[in-house]
Amino acid sequence: MKKDNNVSLARAKARSTARAATVFLIPALLLIAIFIVYPVIDTFVISEYKWNGISADRIFIGMDNWRALIHDAMFWESFKHNLIVMVFSILLQIPLGMLLATFLDAGGKKFNIFKIIWFLPYLMSSVAIAFLFVYALATNGGIVSSLATIIQGKRATVDLLGTSPQALYTVIGVMAWQFTPFYMVYFIAGYGNIDTSVYEAAIIDGATRWQYIKHIAIPLLGPIFKTACTMSLIGSLKYFDMIWNMTQGGPAGSTELMATYMYKLSFQQFNMGYGSTVAAGMFILITAIALIFNKLFKVKEDY
């Protein structure tokens, strides 16, 4: 009898937990369905039409837009630029964030001022940073041109945003300047989750600080690395605002990304049907790359 009562209580508790979970999940699921799932589905639907995005008349053209996308040299060039941004974002932002976090973790509370100073770029708007560097890198009166003039002893102009391929790598550097502090804080949190007894045990065993970082801290931060790389990968494949305000995809398409190409098609050329196809293609490529990355990048999460 007592066993039956325990079973009944367990079932009642499970039902109560399920009801509470449903109540809390429904609003979130509705928001996801309205603002994420529906727009994605609608983008694929619009990609099958010829439409300017304004008129009520839409001409169904089936897979014509998709066939055009497959043979669109500019789209694949934009995708290549996105891949370059992705690779350099991971190679620059993650290691630099790790180095800054290691420095701050070693310094403790006395280095808190550096946390504030180094985090400031991430607090700024991407649009504001874009305009800041447009003026800073201007050929006339910009910082780089002024330094070149001082070094050479005569007037010199350095056009980093107006020449290819320098423009793309200049923008990548600006992106790294803004987003590295995010990964710095992320790794600081990772260091904070490592039990201090692990470090103390390593020191007692005769390990140096570098040996502790190389052989203990970095392996323990494996899941942090994976998550950080995934976020950097996805973010770099959908950059828009900074590069649009710095170069608008120029010069001659040398900094064109998939997002800027999609924007031009949809809102400048009013080719919403084909612009939606580009957006849908972005969605497929980003999802595929993220899934492949997570499949290949495996880390041990239990120690």
Rank of each mutant, 00 (worst) to 15 (best):
Y199W: 15
V198C: 03
V198W: 07
A201Y: 13
F133E: 00
V134M: 08
K214P: 02
E256P: 13
T247V: 10
I213R: 00
S146V: 10
K226Q: 12
I204L: 06
I234E: 14
Q211C: 09
Y239T: 11
E256S: 14
D205A: 05
T247K: 04
K238H: 14
I194R: 04
I172W: 00
R209M: 03
L257Q: 05
Q211H: 08
S164Y: 10
D159N: 15
G253I: 11
R209F: 08
L220Y: 07
I243A: 01
L221S: 01
P219F: 02
S197H: 12
G153N: 09
L147M: 15
W177F: 06
T170N: 03
W210T: 14
Y135A: 02
G190T: 02
T149H: 04
I213N: 06
S254N: 11
S232I: 12
N193S: 15
A201P: 11
Q166K: 15
G162F: 01
W244K: 05
S164F: 15
N140V: 11
L161K: 09
I213M: 11
M258P: 13
A156C: 14
G253V: 12
F179H: 01
G190Q: 00
Q166N: 15
L237Y: 01
G249S: 03
Y239Q: 15
A138W: 00
I234L: 14
A252C: 13
L147S: 04
F133S: 00
Y183P: 01
F225T: 06
I234P: 03
T149R: 03
S197M: 13
D241K: 03
F240N: 11
P223M: 08
I194Y: 04
L132Q: 12
L257H: 08
R209H: 13
G250L: 01
A176C: 09
G162I: 06
